[in-house]
Write a protein that binds this DNA or RNA. Structure first.
Length: 480
RNA sequence: GCUCCCUUCGUCUAGUGGUCCAGGACGCUGCCCUCUCAAGGCGGUAACACGGGUUCGAACCCCGUAGGGAGCGCCA
């Protein structure tokens, strides 16, 4: 008996959040952060997280976009416990609710023409008042057989008040609202109705969404009340702006989550970056997923919008690349090598390459670029590097080191380091005078990992061949 | 235009009346380390939007102003 009661109580208390994107584009960073916060809230409280696709706009919704959103969620690891649900599958239910409201006199038919509505709006704007429907069709007997929309009869007076988890107490006057359309002429339901019905049906306890929806909240609350449903708790998250403070758009560079994936950003880096946008926990910057779940509290979310800063994202990305296990980095790096036409199986162990490059790249794309020479001869020397280091004075050190390396049968980093040291000493040169020309010779570039690791991974045969290429380059220069 | 909201270094933020001539992080920058590039270590640069109050005392409370944002669809 007691256990039974407890169980019932627990059920009601189970927290459920949702992410409800409309599939009209890719998953962008703003949506991803909204999803992250919703997900964190559910995870932190042992609740459920549901994914609902709001595809009632048949004109703009696409299959491609649905897949892009699903792909983005998966990549970020924001796994959902229920769904994906599709609103287009719930039309019968929405109609049932709309008919119920109609029957109860809480909604009515309206046959105002678009022309009348447009004229009304224009008139109101001209008179400097907020444009809203004037209730022209309220109480009019309009036949279901003639073309019409259905409007929700919004309470004409009073105030809608709710306690937002991030905004605090929010109040709207019903006078500011109007009788919104809940069913279009073509019979399809509209957003404010479908959201309310689904949230109630799915048992969503906490509606966490972007604050561009805050103005919809009082309308939704009024519909919920008309339906006699419990209200969820609301949390309206601030927007993410571009680095110039304006609304995030394509001209700010990448906004799609998968674009970051393509650029070689690690999901944990993006997540860490996103969680710190509008939220903080003292001075802490680095958060593992588990720490986020443990420490995240929606009450610590800021009210003000924040600007997206790619530099900081890249810093975090480098941090995670550096900290991660070389074999995972190698695994993630492999496709990027493939994009450059390189099959990692044809050269040194990619795990070893990842290990030596880990702290030298901000993205996996960059790491692939600076690692290409381990797998294939460079097409040309980096111009500045060659100009500076492959000069006639470098000839003797290169010849000497070539000789020393040729004689080496233990091609280990230790012996390679020793060989370079020995040559430098024998010529009475600083190590850099030998190592740097050698570096440019074997890699074609000015910067690589330590010379010992570099030579080791490039291998004896390629090293000797490339030293000859460098010597030929120097000689060609001398001819000029 | 109307309604609502927001405002600490360039950026992300800490800060909830005295411990703040404002702390951390990214960026930029100086030095150290060093075979290059990174990474790392130690420094530096830089902010309470403005104007009035309230108070012994204000980044923190109140009021204006300015700037920014969101919404005002048979889009979501």
């Amino acid at each position: 008996m007691k256990a039974e009661a407890l169980k019932g109580n627990d059920y009601r208390m189970t927290i459920k959040t949702r992410f409800a994107p409309s599939p009209t584009g890719y998953l962008h960073v703003g949506g991803a952060r909204t999803a992250l916060f919703s997900w964190l809230y559910a995870r932190k409280h042992g609740g459920k997280f549901v994914l609902r696709i709001e595809d009632t706009d048949l004109e703009r919704s696409t299959e491609e976009s649905i897949n892009a959103i699903l792909e983005g969620m998966t990549w970020l690891g924001l796994e959902y416990d229920e769904g994906p649900f599709y609103q287009t599958h719930h039309f019968d239910r929405y109609n049932e609710i709309i008919d119920q409201l109609l029957g109860e006199g809480k909604a009515y038919r309206c046959n105002c023409s678009r022309e009348r509505l447009d004229a009304l709006r224009e008139e109101q704007m001209k008179n400097k008042v907020k444009p809203r429907y004037d209730g022209h069709c309220r109480g009019k007997a309009i036949s279901p057989d003639e073309p019409h929309v259905i409007r929700f009869l919004n309470p004409p007076t009073g105030t809608v008040v709710f306690d937002d988890m991030v905004r605090g107490n929010v109040a709207f006057n019903n006078e500011e609202l109007d009788d919104l359309i809940i069913r279009r002429t073509d019979g399809s339901p509209t957003y404010n109705l479908t959201v309310v019905v689904d949230d109630a049906d799915m048992g969503i306890t906490h509606v966490i969404r972007g604050d561009d929806h805050i103005n919809n909240t009082p309308r939704q609350i009024n519909i919920l009340r008309a339906l006699g449903k419990d209200l969820p708790v609301y949390a309206h998250l601030p927007m993410i702006l571009g680095d110039d403070g304006s609304r995030l758009s394509k001209r700010h560079g990448a906004v799609s989550v998968m674009e970051y994936h393509n650029q070689g950003v690690l999901p944990e880096a993006l997540l860490n970056y996103l969680v710190r946008l509008g939220w903080s926990h003292g001075d802490q910057e680095i958060f593992s997923i588990d720490e986020m779940i443990e420490l995240f509290d929606i009450k610590d979310v800021n009210k003000a919008a924040s600007s997206f800063n790619t530099e900081k994202l890249l810093w975090l990305n480098q941090h995670y690349i550096k900290e991660d296990k070389p074999d995972r980095i190698a695994h993630l790096l492999s496709p990027h090598m493939g994009n450059r036409g390189i099959d990692p199986a044809t050269g040194p162990d990619l795990v070893e390459v990842a290990r030596v490059q880990q702290e030298r790249a901000k993205t996996l794309v960059e790491m692939a670029e600076i690692s290409e020479f381990f797998y294939k001869d460079y097409d040309a020397f980096d111009e500045n590097a060659a100009k500076k280091n492959l000069r006639p004075v470098a000839k003797e050190p290169l010849l000497k080191i070539k000789e020393a390396l040729q004689a080496l049968d233990d091609w280990s980093p230790e012996r390679l380091k020793q060989a370079v040291d020995d040559v430098a000493e024998s010529l009475d040169l600083k190590m850099g005078k030998v190592a740097q020309p050698l570096r440019v010779a074997v890699s074609g570039r000015a910067a690589t990992p330590g010379i010992d690791e570099t030579l080791f991974l490039v291998g004896k045969e390629a090293t000797l061949r490339r030293i000859d290429m460098a010597l030929a380059y120097i000689e060609a220069r001398e001819q000029q």
